[in-house]
Design a protein around this nucleic acid. Structure first.
Ligand SMILES: Nc1ncnc2c1ncn2[C@@H]1O[C@H](COP(=O)(O)OP(=O)(O)OP(=O)(O)O)[C@@H](O)[C@H]1O
Length: 696
DNA sequence: AAGAACCAACTTTTT
DNA sequence: GTTGGTTCTT
């Protein structure tokens, strides 16, 4: 029975071969759950003759989907990538593109990100003359999300006690989205449920598309996602899900460790298979992880077998206490250099943290020590203002109902359009903003009229050429509205970075032009992008939040900021449930490691750059102290020239010859982490972020 | 309506 | 250390 079953243990084989009823694979970290899914796809195709495009496999991240696709393509010698190995959100977006008209949307609907959604809420609160301190967009958006994720409007009644207008806001928010032909992230899922429940024939059609459905990381799915699965499976047996309630870390997005146990209730005759062998970590790491999770409460605990491994004992986990956050970062950098000397590669190493702002110090230390790194967190590329500005123009051209995009671009660059002009335009609104603008045109002031001419030209140009020639279109847009000028005057301090970002966007457009993708598809992809997606294969240390490390593994893992208030987060102090999640998060962090774990903490940490606060070691430390070795911090050396001179890395040093997308070739004059002063051949001296520089 | 100048309140985690 | 908001001036 073929090589597909090779490299699987007995329980994994059983899981791959089981088809008699719905299957739930419950197992701890690193036990080969994902491998079960991948091999089951191969088996379904190769041994049972099911076309890969009739198999739906859902992963948590795009990156996991990509890797799974690659494995399957290689193992089965496929000519084309499987279409339906994807995430819940991408799947939903794909379904809704086909079916939008059936639920009252145009098929050019846009996806509103968090920022768009919050701005909409802010507008509503303003228009309704409500107390904007009470109805903070953050809070309101959270509540609305909770309602949508729990398929339960009684949540609304609960909050209505404190916030009497929350119901009205919710309603106006939904109206506002539909008005703009837009969906938020939750709608993406919710509308699939709506579509399927209201249209039996459409549901049938999609059921018939798939012969088998597999889901990875099931513990982090929420009720709507579960509902989508139910609707797609119908009363068939064709589903396998794998998961680990101990690794549930997205309860704030509607997941719950208990959910995975109720899978049985919704899918009758569910068979449960448990895996108990860990293939990832050394004994000590595994035991420490087991210990962490053994302190957790919750009835799901006994449902998962305790893991064992026959790997060697390995080394103790290390705990290193440093005086300050700067020294913590310096230690990590120093220790990485030591590991490199021992033969590890930069890409063997990950630095994990609970909160993304901790990466700042680490980045600085890495630049100083010439350690190649990649930060997988923080402001994502497509959330940057300059990127969103350009995209908003494109969005608006294709979907002129998009109110948030319209408001963003109508006075960007400044065209003399403020509140009162906007009101005039709004009065003419019938069909969409483009029409409103045209119809109100004659009533506007001379200056505005003049300025709007370019605006119309640009929008018309995008409409005409945007889909075929996105790169050229974007460049035309950039020139016509003098966007560079705008960036320079608005961001005198860092406009270079921003221009470079836009340049990078153009490159991405050229890419999609080559691959024959539509702009529409591109916009959708970017809104569903995840931090993990950008992880490079390059030989660099990966720096990320614990959340972003889901499903990944590294020989060496540093966990920074292991302090009460950071890990666990201070927000979890009063809430038992949340503290439980912090514990699971800590479990996830440790179980990413194969060979070495370093926990680091700073006795004093500066908040917001100035005041130093004394910290307390994380409460999780004492749970694993029997596996911990406390290291004294090494004496600090002031300079690192000797180190960087001997190491062969791609880091940038004073004197390095470098290249920049926009400014061309130059020489590094001075390092000011994370920036560098560079003298360029053509444009002279500039100060910019080193990440935009390539050593040559 | 735009821009300067000043202030406040942040930072979980993210599709 | 940033981002967004407010207030004042032009
Ligand atoms: N039967 C096996 N024999 C040897 N190695 C295996 C086997 N199954 C899985 N592995 C390896 O163990 C590691 C963890 O596997 P996998 O990612 O599938 O686990 P997982 O249970 O999905 O982990 P997590 O819960 O952390 O996402 C991988 O490096 C994988 O290649």
């Amino acid at each position: 029975m073929s090589d597909i079953l090779e490299g699987l243990n007995e329980s994994q084989k059983e899981a791959v071969l089981y088809f008699s009823s719905p299957l739930l694979v419950l197992a701890g970290a690193g036990s080969g759950k994902t491998r079960v899914i991948t091999h089951k796809i191969m088996f379904l195709n190769k041994e049972l003759g099911i076309p890969v495009n009739r198999i739906l496999a859902i992963t948590f991240t795009n990156k996991a989907a990509k890797e799974m696709k690659e494995r399957v393509v290689n193992a089965l010698n496929l000519e084309e990538e499987p279409q339906w190995i994807t995430t819940f959100h991408s799947l939903s977006a794909k379904i809704l593109r086909y079916e939008a008209e059936n639920i009252g949307y145009g098929k050019d609907f846009v996806i509103y990100d968090e920022e768009d959604s919050k701005k909409l809420i802010k507008d509503i609160v303003e228009e309704s003359n409500l107390d904007k301190d009470l109805y903070k967009p953050d809070r309101v958006k959270n509540i609305i999300s909770q309602i949508k994720q729990n398929l339960d409007e009684s949540v609304l009644d609960f909050y209505a006690m404190q916030l009497p207008h929350i119901k009205a806001i919710y309603q106006k928010y939904q109206e506002g989205l539909i008005f703009s032909n837009a969906m938020d992230f939750d709608d993406l899922l919710l509308n699939v449920v709506k579509l399927f429940t209201e249209n039996e024939d459409i549901k049938q059609k999609w059921q018939n598309k798939f012969d088998y459905i597999l889901v990875d990381e099931y513990q982090d799915t929420n009720k709507i996602q579960h509902q989508i699965l139910k609707l797609l499976v119908g009363n068939r047996d064709c589903i396998t899900v794998v998961g680990d309630p101990q690794q549930c870390i997205y309860t704030w997005r509607g997941a719950h460790p208990e959910n995975i146990l109720s899978f049985e209730e919704d899918f009758p005759n569910t068979k449960i298979i448990k895996l108990e062998r860990n293939y990832r970590s050394t004994q000590k790491i595994l035991e420490a992880a087991n210990k962490v999770i053994s302190h957790s409460k919750g009835r799901w605990k006994e449902k998962v077998l305790k893991l064992w491994t026959d790997k060697n004992k390995g080394e103790d986990l290390k705990l290193v206490k440093l005086e300050s956050d700067k020294q913590e970062a310096a230690f990590i950098a120093y220790q990485i250099k030591e590991l490199i000397k021992q033969g590890y590669k930069y890409s063997d190493i990950a630095v994990l943290m609970r909160m993304s702002f901790l990466s700042r110090n680490i980045e600085e230390a890495f630049v100083r020590m010439s350690i190649p790194y990649q930060i997988i967190a923080g402001l994502k590329f497509y959330e940057r203002a300059e990127i969103k500005d350009i995209l908003a123009y494109l969005r608006f051209a294709f979907n002129p109902k998009d109110t948030q995009a319209f408001k963003r671009i109508i006075n960007l660059p400044s065209r003399g359009i403020g509140k009162s002009t906007l009101n005039k335009i709004q009065k003419s609104y019938v069909e969409d903003w483009y029409q409103a603008l045209k119809d109100s045109y004659e009533t506007l002031s001379k200056k505005v009229k003049y300025n709007l001419q370019t605006f119309f030209e640009v929008i018309d140009f995008i409409k005409k050429y945007g889909n075929e020639k996105p790169a050229e279109t974007a460049k035309y847009l950039y020139d016509s509205i003098d966007y560079e000028e705008y960036l320079i005057s608005k961001y005198p301090k860092d406009y270079e970075d921003r221009i470079a970002n836009v340049q990078e966007l153009f490159t991405a457009f050229e890419e999609i032009e080559k691959r024959g993708k539509t702009l529409q598809e591109f916009l959708e992809e970017t809104s569903l992008e995840q931090a993990q997606d950008n992880i490079e294969d390059s030989n660099s240390v990966k720096v990320m939040t614990v959340h972003a490390s889901k499903g990944l593994e590294y020989p060496v893992v540093f966990i920074a900021g292991v302090e009460d208030g950071i890990f666990p987060s201070g927000r979890a102090f009063e809430d038992v449930e949340q503290m439980e999640e912090e514990r699971r998060l800590f479990y996830v962090a440790i179980t990413r490691a194969k060979e070495h774990v370093y926990l680091t903490l700073a006795k004093y940490r500066s908040s917001f750059g100035n005041s130093f606060n004394e910290t307390k070691p994380s409460r999780f430390i004492k749970d694993i102290k029997e596996y911990l070795k406390v290291l004294s911090s090494k004496p600090k050396k002031k300079t690192d020239n000797s180190l960087s001179a001997t190491s062969t890395n791609t880091g940038i040093r004073v004197g390095s010859l470098v290249k920049h997308e926009v400014f061309g070739k130059g020489v590094v004059k001075e390092l000011k982490p994370p920036k560098a002063k560079v003298i360029f051949e053509k444009v002279g001296e500039k100060e910019l972020l080193t990440k935009f520089l390539k050593a040559i």
